[in-house]
């Protein structure tokens, strides 16, 4: 359903800071796949998601979503089919608006927005039920501004907003990295639950190798803008974090010295 054909993304081409963030990368995903992506800093994980989401236009190659070529379609158009949760809990919501208003904006995603009331009665009831399912007590705070929520609550809300209209593809960009460990676990469980219930196709970037192997059905490791490891099925079931580190050194010819990857 997602097909990425030999894409390349170069930042600041021709300058002294030129950096090839994505290097001739190809990737195909099937319906219902839950792909986890790991890699060190600067490996190109976030850039890959941003290229899929349309934040950056790629310099070469093509991206197809459901056989449709979306390589040059602008970010806001792709967003109708792609749900996103960002690393920064502030990025996914409008802080000066209420929880209910934020959900209403998300729920109108597929529609053309006009002069009809932004929140309808029946929808408000549905928002409340969906919030209750998160188990965070947010259903009693519908009229409070999102700015009052904690990071974890915001990420949970952003997850709900990204999935309230079923997206064809869900992109999670280290969405638990800014949270404390207990909250991160809670949000990850919620992520898995939402993906399962809605039968979503998802890509999750993480810096936590354990999480990468624990969640989803396929894992890729990126290095210098390329995919250097790709596990799925039985092979993936046997992989441990130690094996992953060993494989990384073998494949990249470098020793994995990324504290962030190793310590988490």
């Amino acid at each position: 359903m997602l097909k990425i054909e030999r894409i390349t993304k170069i930042f600041a081409p021709g300058s002294i800071n030129e950096k090839t963030a994505i290097d001739d990368l190809s990737l195909t995903m099937n319906d219902g796949d839950f792909l986890t992506v790991i890699g060190g800093n600067g490996a190109g994980k976030s850039t890959l998601l941003n290229c899929i989401a349309g934040v950056f236009e790629v310099d070469a190659g093509h991206i197809y979503l459901d056989q449709k070529n979306i390589t040059f379609s602008p970010e806001y158009k792709r967003s109708k089919y792609i749900g996103r949760v960002f690393q920064n809990p502030l990025s996914g919501t409008a802080f000066d608006m209420t929880i209910e208003e934020n959900l209403a904006i998300a729920y109108a995603k597929a529609k053309t927005r006009g002069l009809k009331p932004g929140i309808k009665k029946a929808e408000a009831k549905m928002f409340k039920d969906k919030l209750a399912q998160l188990g965070l007590g947010l259903e009693d705070r519908m009229y409070q501004k999102v700015g009052l929520l904690s990071g974890g609550q915001r990420q949970a809300l952003t997850l709900l907003m990204a999935t309230i209209v079923k997206p064809r593809l869900l992109l999670l960009d280290e969405h638990t990295a800014a949270l404390d460990p207990a909250t991160a676990r809670q949000v990850l469980h919620l992520t898995r639950q939402l993906i399962k219930v809605n039968e979503l196709t998802a890509i999750m970037v993480t810096h936590n190798m354990k999480n990468a192997l624990e969640y989803g059905n396929r894992t890729i490791m990126m290095h210098e803008g390329r995919i250097i490891l790709d596990f799925a099925g039985e092979e993936r079931a046997k992989v441990t974090v130690e094996k992953l580190i060993e494989q990384f050194s073998h494949q990249s010819g470098e020793i994995l010295d990324n504290d962030r990857l190793l310590l988490s």
Binding site: S91, A108, R113
Partner: peptide
């Protein structure tokens, strides 16, 4: 107007343009 579908996203634009684009709206 500020509570209509269009009004809501106009208000959200002042808060967070990135979020508005992620919600399928041309800022």
């Amino acid at each position: 107007f500020l509570k209509t579908e269009l009004g809501l996203v106009i208000r959200a634009t002042g808060d967070n343009e990135q979020m508005v684009r992620a919600m399928g709206v041309n800022t």
